[in-house]
Design a binder for these strands. Structure first.
Lengths: 340, 340
DNA sequence: CTGAAAGCGCTTACAG
DNA sequence: CTGAAAGCGCTTACAG
């Protein structure tokens, strides 16, 4: 039925291990003549090696897991920001001869099970909380290289790649301060003392303090990072924070909601309130007013994640320091001087 | 190192096949007492079966491929519409004990290779052209169940699930005609005589003919399904089609671009030109004006795709007729009577 | 440059 | 209710 190594070997009149060597590019051990003949027969017969047999016999599966949090009831937590990363990672892996197992993880305890079940050569963690990443121990990961994207967890086992969130927030805050804003709301998900949002808050506060703005004029609004929560916040923003003239939202999708809520409530944007986001999603350029935001290098995140993970897998490199990617301010139409 | 079936068997004082039976739920063949003891030891030792060994020994891999077109240079072709499907399919599979291999396919010829390499139990095709789906032969698919989403290809091997595109287009056209529009542009990607876009064109034309509108008043604009192409079309729409008062775009992302292009050119939407889309993406409710569109049941597509594929895998069912999901008109603010 | 043999960790008839 | 044995399709030292 299925064409096996053995069938090729018989057709070529050589041993299975010679065919195996040809397939695996160990041609130094095989004569050019034999190599050619074997290759021709492989092509003729349309032979495709069995990945599971290979995985079982070798120490390598050439399978990489992309692990994403997912309550079993819910679908995967694929934020607009994470979506672009998916495709880029698959592409990078495929070009290097690896395959991608996409796995939703309802409980971080499942991570170890996922790694061992398919003998994954490595895994990328996308969207987990820093507390969860920090809790990952050698006992659960074994010797499998694992890399966390956007993590500030102090876990040498998972150091990965992320954006320069602190600087991004500084750019956003400095932009608003430079326009003349003095009362600025920080809107984002609740945060602890570690993680992406915390870093952005730190950068935000640092810049405002340098500008001499008191903390009480720059309150924090904790909301979920969804369009709907943004709309709700926008609708009540000026009642909750009289005198506020600007909002820094930690995600574009949230900023877009806030703008919609403000406009629906009759508050002109950026006339009465300026809004700046973070991510630079595609849609951020499509809405009205077009969103001023902090752009992340999403393809760069994905490409570097693949490079670093494979370097560890193939080269046995130790986990290096986290790679921090630059961000930049993208000025569009949702910010202006107060009262403009 | 790794805990194996054999280790569990030794610890429990039984044979490996008894442990195997317990794991695979064939408890009818094992005493309740033994079952309990084995289960306890499995939990204690944190045993995780080797999926590749299992796949090799059994006829089943419990691995499903999600195959998506991807030029090797490009990232995956993940349109906003397809993205929601990803997560839903992963979730459905995971709940049923299957895993998902996400694979970009640069050339349809790779499909067979993908299926055989990992001994996939089945595969879902997402985003392929109907010509490509139609060309799939038993020779390349073998006996592996394959299901194509959104396909009109007349290939019994791949019948899958899709929306009622014809009716969707009728709803869109009837909505515009009902508002009083008489000159309506059909904007979408170039199409052949089979496929999603062709069906929508047929529904569009049928409705307009019933309304007595001559074909020359309802021209076709072939553009790529991207925001950018939409903007370009919107900018030149009234020069290209003087007197036109409405556009039916075959995708929301395209409709959104068209609206942006129109507004940038000083054409009020829906005041001078109404625009209706197709998909009902999340962002379609966020833009200004909020987009009137035809909603597809995307979670339904994914859930039914999983159900049907697994029915074929587990039950050996023959491929059934395609499942056609209902669509519905979502009226928002981008359409109005002409000159409103 | 080439090969025989063991082994990766499971499942599957088959036998009892 | 339980087990011994063969086999899934590869790779890996080891030998020559």
């Amino acid at each position: 039925m299925r064409v096996r190594l053995k069938d090729i070997a018989e057709a070529a009149g050589v041993s299975v291990m010679t065919v195996s060597n040809v397939i695996n590019g160990k041609t130094a051990r095989v004569s050019a003549e034999t190599t050619d003949r074997v290759r021709r027969i492989i092509a003729e017969r349309g032979y495709v090696p069995s990945a599971s047999a290979r995985s079982l016999a070798a120490k390598s599966s050439r399978l990489i897991g992309l692990l994403v949090p997912a309550a079993s009831e819910d679908s995967l937590a694929i934020s607009p920001h994470n979506i672009a990363i998916f495709g880029q990672i698959e592409r990078g892996l495929r070009k290097r001869g690896y395959h991608l197992l996409l796995r939703g993880v309802a409980d971080p305890a499942e991570i170890g099970e996922a790694l061992r079940s398919w003998s994954l050569d490595g895994a990328v963690l996308l969207g987990f909380l820093d507390e969860e990443v920090a809790a990952l121990r050698p006992g659960v990961l074994g010797r499998t290289p694992v890399l966390a994207i956007d993590s500030y967890a102090d876990n040498p086992l998972t150091t990965g790649v992320r954006s320069d969130d602190f600087t991004g927030a500084r750019l956003a805050a400095a932009h608003l301060v430079g326009l003349g804003h003095r009362r600025i709301v920080f809107a984002g998900p609740a945060f602890t003392d570690v993680g992406v949002v915390h870093e952005r808050f730190l950068g935000f506060r640092a810049t405002l303090e340098e500008a001499g703005l008191p903390a009480e004029d720059c309150p924090v609004e904790s909301v979920n990072t969804t369009h709907g929560d943004g709309v709700a916040l926008g609708a009540r923003l000026l009642q909750a924070h009289p005198g506020c003239t600007a909002v820094f939202a930690t995600a574009d999708i949230l900023a877009i909601g806030i703008i919609e809520g403000l406009i629906a409530a009759g508050v002109p944007v950026p006339g009465a309130v300026s809004v700046i986001g973070f991510d630079d999603l595609d849609i951020s350029a499509y809405i009205t007013p077009r969103l001023t935001t902090i752009a992340q290098d999403i393809p760069g995140k994905a490409a570097n994640a693949v490079d670093r993970l494979l370097a560890r897998i193939e080269g046995g490199d130790r986990p290096a320091d986290p790679l921090v990617l630059d961000v930049r301010l993208v000025e569009r139409d949702s910010t202006a001087p107060p009262g403009a």
